[in-house]
């Protein structure tokens, strides 16, 4: 897997954790069942996301910032040959490569980064 894609995946997961913690149900569950200090957790997630963002190279970082600012999710899976960000078919040649995650693939329609689940 491309190193930058791996970083983006981690960032995406952290963004998701942060958003989930900001929601009522998850917030209540995490603090109620696991005794989590939600405000501290949110701050820690924010720090880690910023730290990872600094690891992105120029063009990837630029695209990431542009996409995350307007579309919430910068990385989306490709399932059944369809981008799960905009639901438009992607070129089949990408998926047929032995490891499509070895290079950075970007949706030609919505601009999100693509991830091919195993």
């Amino acid at each position: 897997m491309h190193e930058q894609l791996e970083t983006l995946l981690e960032m995406q997961d952290l963004h998701m954790q942060r958003r989930a913690l900001e929601e009522g149900d998850v917030r209540e569950f995490e603090s109620g069942v696991f005794d989590m200090s939600v405000e501290e957790a949110l701050a820690a997630l924010e720090d880690k996301i910023s730290d990872l963002e600094r690891r992105l190279t120029g063009d990837v970082q630029e695209r990431y910032r542009r996409v995350i600012g307007s579309r919430h999710r910068a990385v989306v899976p490709v399932l059944g040959g369809v981008c799960y960000g905009c639901f438009v078919a992607v070129p089949t040649s990408w998926a047929s490569e032995s490891d499509p995650n070895a290079k950075m693939n970007v949706c030609q329609n919505c601009g999100r980064f693509h991830y091919y689940p195993p």
């Binding site: 501290e40 957790a41 997630l45």
Partner: peptide, 15 residues
């Protein structure tokens, strides 16, 4: 990646 995420969750508070 999954291991990292689980670890990250644990750093926010033990499960």
């Amino acid at each position: 990646i999954l291991f990292k995420m689980l670890k990250r969750r644990e750093t926010l508070g033990s499960t």
